[in-house]
Amino acid sequence: MTRYVLVRVVNGLFVLWAALTASFLVLHLVPGDPVAVMLRGAGGEGTAVDPAAADELRAELGLDQPVYRQYLEFVGDAARGEFGTSFRSGDEVTAVLGGALPATLELAGAALLLTLVVGVAAAVAASLLPTAPLRSAVLSSTVVGNALPSFWTGIILLQVFSFGLGWFPAFGAGDLSQLVLPAITLALPGIGLLTQVLGRGLRAALAEPYVRTARAKGASRARAVFVHALRNAAIPAMTLFGLMIGGIVAGAVVTETVFAREGVGRLTAEAIGTHDFPVIRALVFLAGALYVVVNLAVDLIYPRVDPRIVLRSA
């Protein structure tokens, strides 16, 4: 067990290194000069850039160094948890990230909780329905949530509940009422997916002979679902939910933009737009670390859910 975790942590570090290296290379291949962007400032594309000022800035940022030098320096800093200063604002990247994180954590936490509760409830409810057509109807209806792009659902929700009915504030962050619409927008696709996977897993599990054994003991249909089928159907749903946690930053990009919320998602969009390399790298590191940690956590939970699963570091 300890050995397994150790091996997995080393693997995780490798994954992070690979992610950082890939992001470093890609950023250097992308056309566009961050220095030019910074010097133009608010002036936009057409503004002229003073070459001397540009060189000065380049030297200051270390961008005049050979690429391999920049790379080594970057990896060394990343290993110490330092990501430098933002090209755009000049602030410490860790501080920029730290400022954006709470709002996103709040949004992501709310959305994931919503996904879990509604997804599991819908799947279980569907499997308890008396006839097969009803069950398929409920399961199929959740596909809709999955099929609608979140920028669209976000805008529709805003139109109806903020501008139309005035129930929730349209923009901003801070209190709970401002969290409702973005959380729903971010959760909807996941709810559809989770309901599908868990619902089908439950259906397969309920057809297994051990469920018949349970019913033959005198267990009710509900007991068969909750006590016997649910845990057996949980593994694929757990895998999926783990991936959702890992992918939450990507979802936040769209949601935070639509609802004009501050947060990691917005920060990502802006950093990419302005070639703010240090911030982008830190975000890649953050997203990668999230994936690695969540994946490891999910893998460690598997054997607790299904005793037939044995963790092997091979």
Binding site: P209, Y210, R212, T213, R231, N232, P307
Partner: peptide
């Protein structure tokens, strides 16, 4: 039941 290994809840 008929199939003993499949008729017990594996978890």
């Amino acid at each position: 039941p008929q199939d003993p290994t499949a008729s017990l809840n594996p978890v």
